[in-house]
Design a protein around this nucleic acid. Structure first.
Lengths: 101, 101
DNA sequence: TAACTATATTACTTTTAAGTAAGTTATTGT
DNA sequence: ACAATAACTTACTTAAAAGTAATATAGTTA
């Protein structure tokens, strides 16, 4: 009895992916800015994670040919479709932590 | 800028937790039945995961003193509060996989 | 020409997650 | 007395995730 939830978790079921997607909800950000918003992430994991999100078509990556380089990440249409889920997860955390901590 | 989503992911951000919670949405199940619904999970991971969910107060564990043993898991109130999120994740997977596969 | 910038990549190590297979418990039916 | 049962538990191994630190790039400015 495989359920679609398996599929969803295969795409976004990691420590960092939902966080990165969440921080792009209000619009595209350049790489460094986005990375600084994700507290605790290492440089390696940041790059690795955004690459996977790009490969899976959840975000887009735009390179501006300037020096020093400028790279912007933003949600794709597919990534946008996770908006209400991401906001719900965040909201749940807020409410739950008020009750249980 | 820490966001509550971090907290949420700390509680349910693993491979198996959302699956287990999801399969309890329609009511409590005894251990063996629940485990058989989670395809691909090993015995060890099943026990380990339900124990963590119990420790975090997302599910309850009821032991019936019979032989052979009977143990029932069900969502706690706190676990129930994840219902709409879990169903949304499942629904998203269904819709997304229809589009992208 | 050397330092500075933003974005990444690589090699290496550590940590955590997960899997395998065998063993435990306590009673009931044979 | 011993096999069957459901629900674990344990020791051990393997695989995956994550961290650290050094390095690359290539124009710009001091």
């Amino acid at each position: 009895m495989k359920c679609p939830l398996n599929y969803t978790m295969g795409l976004i079921g990691t420590k960092w992916k939902p966080l990165i997607l969440f921080h792009l909800l209000d619009g595209g950000l350049r790489s460094g800015i986005l990375q600084r918003k994700i507290e605790g992430i290492s440089n390696k994991m940041f790059t690795q994670t955004v690459r996977e999100l790009e490969k899976d078509g959840l975000i887009t990556r735009t390179i501006f040919p300037v020096v020093p380089p400028k790279v912007e990440y933003k949600l794709s249409k597919r990534g946008q479709s996770l908006e209400s889920i991401l906001r719900s997860l965040d909201k749940w955390g807020l409410q739950d932590s008020e009750i249980n901590n």
